[in-house]
């Protein structure tokens, strides 16, 4: 939970620092288009949809989240099969609760590297000079464990947080804008997706999503979000 909040804070900063970009992506030059093995291990998509109430509190909506999870799943599958990739699923994440197990540790490292990328790759003030303009991030070859266990060449990780404005909040926003010209924050969609070469651990593709619109609650909206998130996904 702390990590999620941290991420939200980081992404908010990204947003504030880099004005108002929607998505931007990085592709490693290590990714060879000719790679014949296109099996992709889909790590459990971390999705959460919440409602902004009039007072500005966010409440997670379980029904929306369940819908979104289903939609994202469907459209990820569709998008990846259009790119001729084969999907493999990770055994239920809740199964492995041993903190020290390799699989748990690799997933934790992936989270840490993802946050590091959001910080140092997307915030100009936080750029690491030794990295130059290259996109060079890796989890190291221990990811082979996942490759062997699941028979997949790549791992895809998707993270989305989406919030919507409730009726009460919408009225407050309207009033604030009309009376004082101040804008209260409405709903936002933020997230990232990363593709890891499980043989080397290299992050071969990384895309960030941040925008003030988008809707995962219905099918067209979800398809659009997945499309945006996988924009520039290597073919």
């Amino acid at each position: 939970m702390r990590r999620m909040k941290m991420l939200i804070v980081v992404v908010l900063i990204v947003h504030m620092v880099s004005a108002c970009v929607t998505t931007s992506f990085y592709k490693s030059d290590k990714l060879t288009a000719q790679e014949s093995d296109r099996t992709v291990l889909l790590l459990p998509a971390d999705v959460e949809l919440s409602e902004l109430t009039a007072g500005g509190l966010t409440e997670i909506n379980a029904e929306w989240t369940a819908q979104a999870q289903r939609h994202i799943d469907t459209f990820l599958k569709k998008a990846l099969s259009e790119r001729k990739a084969q999907l493999v699923r990770l055994a239920s994440a809740s199964g492995d609760t041993n903190r020290l197990s390799k699989q748990v540790q690799i997933l934790k490292l992936h989270g840490a590297v993802g946050r590091t990328i959001l910080t140092h790759q997307y915030i100009p003030e936080m750029k690491l000079p030794t990295k130059g303009d290259k996109f060079e991030w890796t989890l190291g070859p221990e990811t082979r464990l996942l490759r062997e266990k699941y028979g997949a060449r790549y791992g895809l990780f998707v993270y989305v947080r989406d919030s919507y404005t409730s009726a009460g909040r919408a009225v407050a926003m309207f009033l604030a804008a009309a009376l004082f010209g101040v804008s209260l924050q409405g709903g936002t969609q933020l997230g990232f997706a990363s593709l890891v070469d499980l043989d080397t651990g290299d992050i071969v593709w990384f895309n960030r999503l941040f925008r003030g619109h988008g809707d995962l609650r219905d099918e067209p909206g979800a398809e659009d979000t997945v499309k945006t998130l996988l924009e520039n996904f290597p073919t």
Binding site: I8, L12, I13, G56, L57, T58, Q185
Partner: peptide, 9 residues
């Protein structure tokens, strides 16, 4: 919560 988040950010 959002306000606090914004302040924190």
């Amino acid at each position: 919560m959002t306000t606090l988040r914004r302040i924190a950010a």
